[in-house]
Nucleic acid binder design. Structure first.
Lengths: 161, 161
DNA sequence: ATATTATTGTTGCAAACGCAACAGTTCGAC
DNA sequence: GTCGAACTGTTGCGTTTGCAACAATAATAT
């Protein structure tokens, strides 16, 4: 893997530089995640679902879909996998017969905690290149951007109706 | 699409908050990209390749693979598509008979410029939620992180040998 | 020179994902 | 209450992508 330090100097705007960097960061973080999670038999997607669950009421599938920003069908198949693996189980929602909750089994809970600890440790290690102060700074920026960009999507969706 | 403003407060560390935000940002940016590029018949992946090309010597496939951080096979298939579409053509490298260069056709060049302008406009619009000063700040952070994270991957790769 | 190793691009295969369509259920207007 | 619209989860299907294996070529060691 040869990482050319390809020049952001050819890029005309700061907006575009930011764009490229976010893309690269996402990819590089994902590669790191796989290395941490693979020994536990988890993909990043499965891990992200696992983290959102608990052993009590769990979460509805549509909630998982919304929070992870993936299609409902993707969640259906992820939960199928994880149910087969014995990590989660589906529970019918008593107040809405369309809906189901997904909750962790005891095996799933143990795996969740183990994976979470490992990932957390790795993340703090990787993010450690930035000081705590810088991290707080970044979080503020990102929250601002995420909110603005999400609202824009909601606006566009409304216009479609 | 219901965007719960799900709490980052449950998240224990700043490192993890950053992680989630980068993930969300990437996804939301990608959704925006698709909206801009779809009218031009381009996917984000095709666009990213197009931007790296020119009409002269072009780029080698392995270079595209390295810069975009995707598998070589992915580039092969992307270039297949784009060659069929008439946007690019393969040129044998005279100094290395294994290698090929990919260069833009005149159609490809026109498309590249059109897509680039549209994307650039959209990006500045979307990134505009942050001031120029904040953007510069972010770029500095990201460069720092990208460099550190990439070096880490290279280290791990070397250990494998 | 020759043999081993590395690199470049391609292909088969499987996994992951989104979109559209669908059935069952709930909500809302009237 | 009733009917149409909206929501929830599932499935079929096509697209995208990475990994492993491969052939052709280049680089390196001896």
């Amino acid at each position: 893997m040869a990482f050319d330090d390809f020049d952001l100097d050819n890029v005309p705007s700061n907006a575009h530089r930011l764009y490229r960097l976010i893309h690269d960061l996402y990819v590089v973080l994902d590669v790191g995640d796989r290395e941490v999670l693979q020994p536990l038999g988890l993909t990043p997607s499965q891990y992200r679902v696992l983290v959102l669950l608990d052993a009590n009421f769990g979460q509805r599938l549509i909630t998982l879909s919304d929070r992870l920003l993936v299609a409902r069908s993707t969640i259906t198949r992820l939960i199928d996998q994880m149910e087969t693996a014995g990590w989660v189980h589906r529970i019918d929602d008593p107040s809405d017969r369309r809906a189901q909750h997904v909750a962790l089994t005891s095996v799933g809970l143990a795996l969740r905690n183990q994976a979470y600890a490992a990932h957390e440790h790795s993340l703090e290690d990787r993010m450690g290149v930035l000081g705590e102060h810088d991290q707080q700074h970044l979080i503020d920026f990102f929250l601002q951007m995420r909110t603005a960009l999400r609202n824009r999507i909601i606006e566009i969706d409304s216009q479609r109706e």
